[in-house]
């Protein structure tokens, strides 16, 4: 099989699972993120709806992602992230960082940080900020794999 461009160019791209746990009608936002991540050289796994924390964890494991990025606009963030982080711990998953985003009140942000969900950017955050954050978390995650 032919390989095209120099291998170095494609070396070890960051793998991100872009997860959407609820139908909250913001597909467009998700696609904008997906495109931005791809253009930043990442491999973006987009599975459509991942209704349960179990389905998020199972998918993240098969795909061996570095980062799970979850965007939530429907206010259910605390419950979803709590379940997800508990499950990741229970299944002893190592080397996968969780990054959040959406409409998240400031008081919740601190709580989320505490359980390991970082970022938690609101709408209007420059894409470059989100991308830099994901790169940083991916690097940390990889050192724990």
């Amino acid at each position: 099989m032919e390989n095209g461009k120099s291998l170095k160019f494609y070396k070890k791209p960051i793998r991100v699972l872009l997860a959407k746990p609820a139908i909250d009608g913001h597909d467009r936002g998700i696609y904008i993120l997906a495109r931005a991540f791809r253009d930043a050289g990442m491999e973006v796994i987009y599975p459509g709806l991942l209704p349960t924390p179990e389905s998020i964890v199972n998918t993240a494991i098969d795909e061996d992602v570095d980062v799970i990025a979850i965007s939530l606009l429907n206010g259910a963030h605390m419950a979803v992230f709590h379940k997800l982080m508990t499950l990741l711990k229970k299944r002893k998953v190592k080397g996968i960082a969780v990054v959040g985003g959406g409409i998240i009140p400031d008081e919740d942000k601190a709580k989320l940080e505490k359980i390991g969900v970082s970022g938690n950017y609101g709408p209007g955050t420059p894409l470059s900020v989100i991308i830099e954050h994901i790169k940083k978390r991916a690097e940390e995650a990889r050192s724990e794999k």
């Binding site: 461009k5 791209p13 991540f37 253009d39 491999e43 973006v44 796994i45 987009y46 599975p47 459509g48």
Partner: peptide, 12 residues
Amino acid sequence: PFTGGSFLGNRI
């Protein structure tokens, strides 16, 4: 071919 990144959407 420009960034080396990709959108992996077959799971949908």
